[in-house]
Amino acid sequence: MWIRSELKERGKITFKRFYWKAVLVCFICLLLSGGLGSGAGSRVSDTYDSFMHNDYNYTDDYYYGNDEYYYDEDLDQEASDSFNIMEEFFASGFFLLFIGIFILIFIVLFIIKLLIVYPIEIGKNNFFMGIREEEKTLDSLIFIYKSGQLKNTIFTMFMKGLFQFLWSLLFIIPGIIKAYEYRMIPYILSENPDISRQRAFEISKRMMGGNKWNTFVLDLSFLGWEILSIFTIGILGIFYVNPYVQSTNAELYAYLREDALKNGYVSSSELIGF
């Protein structure tokens, strides 16, 4: 059984050997995949909190707050005016324009995720697995584009994300469990992009059998570093935490890979090395 502290120590040693390349790879991945859609949720939450915590009180026939009085008739008139404005908006062309822009943005982000984020994520894993043995070039990030298996890897990664989303609809816990069950799929694809979707899912499931909880604890062990990174406005994350985490995850896959080969539920023709 793998030991968390040993994986982290080996990961730390590995990325420090090729420090600047490891930092650059993580930074490129962060630029491509991080922060999409961030801020919108917090703005909605702030709006809701502002409304719910406004200093309004209710007595028999009026509301009062901040020395201003609002009678029921006034509120009814305001509500009526608001409904009229909403009705005019939905009836106008601006609503259709808004929907069209929203759909266009969604499609563009979806295409970016398929054609750029997924392949670069797999390339990142290929880089961090490779530097365990020798120096790797930044070309590792785009090796999927050169492999001739771009379509297969995109489809597999898309199905991984889709299944995780569908399981998360059954409340949060099933989605988290499946996320850990599918965790090794990007590593398997980074080693053999030609492998079938069904086989990649099957191998990842076998690898993570009995390892999901320990991997969850491994992730939690980086929580302190993540908090420190927040206090440094992400600078610590860029120059230390992110490559540290990626190198440790590569060590975890390396252990599970060797265990899979030793136990015979995967062959060397499927996990062909880096």
Rank of each mutant, 00 (worst) to 15 (best):
I154D: 06
Y244D: 13
L223W: 13
D76I: 09
L166D: 05
T156W: 04
E258S: 12
F216W: 14
I101D: 02
M157N: 04
R10T: 10
D219M: 05
Y187F: 15
I272R: 12
D194I: 00
D259E: 15
W20E: 04
W2A: 15
T59C: 05
L75E: 07
F102H: 03
T137C: 03
R257A: 02
F163P: 00
T14D: 14
S269P: 00
I99M: 12
L189R: 06
S267H: 08
G237C: 08
G100Q: 06
T14Q: 10
Y244K: 14
I272P: 01
L109A: 10
K124D: 06
Y56W: 14
I142F: 12
L141V: 09
V266A: 01
S229M: 10
G224K: 05
E78G: 03
E226G: 03
I112M: 11
W2H: 09
I112K: 13
W167Q: 00
R4Y: 03
N126V: 08
M157I: 01
F89H: 01
G123N: 09
K262F: 06
L115K: 11
D67R: 12
S42R: 11
W213S: 06
A200M: 03
R4S: 11
I230R: 10
F110P: 00
C26S: 15
W2I: 12
G11Y: 03
W213H: 01
A260R: 03
A254D: 12
F27N: 04
L218S: 07
H53I: 01
Q149M: 11
G39Y: 11
G37R: 04
W167P: 04
P174N: 06
Y255W: 10
A40P: 00
Y64A: 01
M184Y: 07
L170P: 01
E88R: 12
F239C: 10
D72K: 13
A250R: 03
Y70S: 01
K124F: 02
I99L: 15
M207R: 05
E226K: 15
E251M: 13
S221Y: 08
L36N: 02
F165C: 01
F51R: 00
D74F: 13
F15M: 10
F128E: 06
F201P: 02
Q246K: 15
L223V: 14
G237M: 09
I111Q: 04
K12A: 13
I111D: 01
K160M: 12
M157P: 00
K178S: 00
K8Y: 06
L189P: 03
